[in-house]
């Protein structure tokens, strides 16, 4: 077991940031914490990286207790906080060298681990970190977090505010790191990134809604989900919400994801209803639920 969290709770004043959280991450696993801002992801990361002390519960990282063995943990984990936390007035090279030095190693010693990532930013090695683009900064931060060959890597919202191209590249990098045996705990507010993890924990309001592999999570979606489309989106949403048998109505891109209260749902009946309400170009098709659908379903309970 690489990370083990048992009944962790933590409050700030009267706000409960984490409420009785438990989960385990296996060695070499890519584990995702999926949830919106304020779900408690950062607090959990800080507890696991020994920066905060939980009020209740216990946790171990790489076999070390977060409280008693915090020094050992600090030697064996890499941590990339949510904000870009490198020295903006130092160059790419200087930042990397600095972090290598304070971890008692050199860039050369662990170069094979960061090589894939570093070659992409190497052309800019003399540039100050503050002058890099979002994607570059993120790559540099990852290099710095990896420079001492950590056993466990903590990445707190690494892809927030980064464009899709950089995001995709970033996840490809994580997959490669995982193959080198590094356990990765990553958090993200983007549901579409969840599918890229081995297992995920859906988290909201300081509580874990569900933990499983992404395919299993969507398999547990309790209802039949329909994609409903029509010409006037606003009217469609309003009309569906006014339908007496509706269970949930969520806009989903160019369609609306609709579930019905009844087990014997008849799409023709709904189509008829929508037509009588003056909607045109109506389409109703059954569709596969996504992790986001599951999340919303769990969150409304």
């Amino acid at each position: 077991m690489s990370i083990s969290v048992q009944h962790i709770s933590k409050s700030y004043k009267d706000v409960k940031a984490l409420n009785n959280i438990s989960f385990e991450v296996n060695e070499g696993e890519l584990f995702g914490l999926i949830g919106p801002d304020g779900a408690g992801k950062t607090t959990l990361f800080r507890i696991l990286t020994t920066l905060l002390i939980a009020e209740k519960g216990s946790a171990t990282v790489a076999g070390f207790d977060v409280l008693d063995d915090y020094k050992s943990i600090r030697n064996h984990v890499g941590y990339m906080p949510g904000r870009f936390s490198l020295y903006q007035d130092l160059t790419v090279e200087e930042n990397l060298n600095f972090f290598a030095t304070i971890f008692g190693t050199t860039v050369e010693e662990n170069y094979d681990l960061i090589k894939d990532i570093y070659v992409q930013i190497e052309p800019f090695k003399k540039r100050r970190a503050g002058k890099l683009s979002g994607g570059m900064k993120q790559k540099l931060a990852l290099c710095c977090a990896l420079i001492h060959k950590p056993k466990v890597l903590f990445l707190d919202e690494p892809t927030t505010g980064v464009d899709p191209v950089s995001r995709k590249e970033f996840w490809e990098m994580l997959k490669r790191l995982q193959q080198k045996g590094i356990t990765i705990l990553v958090s993200t507010p983007y549901m579409d990134e969840a599918a890229l993890c081995d297992r995920i924990a859906l988290i909201q309001g300081g509580e874990i809604l569900q933990i499983d592999t992404p395919p299993e999570i969507v398999k547990h979606y309790p209802k039949k989900l329909y994609n409903v489309g029509a010409d006037n989106m606003y009217k469609l949403i309003e009309t569906l919400k006014g339908y007496e048998h509706q269970y949930s109505v969520y806009p989903f891109g160019e369609f609306v994801h609709y579930t019905d209260n009844r087990s014997d749902f008849n799409s023709k009946e709904l189509k008829l209803y929508l037509e009588t309400m003056n909607l045109s170009n109506i389409s109703i098709e059954i569709t596969k639920p996504t992790i986001e659908d599951t999340f919303m379903e769990l969150a409304r309970l």
């Binding site: 919106p36 927030t160 505010g161 006037n232 969520y250 806009p251 999340f295 919303m296 969150a299 409304r300």
Partner: peptide, 21 residues
């Protein structure tokens, strides 16, 4: 809408649809 939970996000988009309408 960065960072908000999926349900709130959809409520936000419903507001946008309404405004556009």
């Amino acid at each position: 809408t960065g960072g908000v939970d999926p349900i709130t996000r959809r409520q936000f988009w419903e507001m946008i649809y309404k405004t556009a309408n």
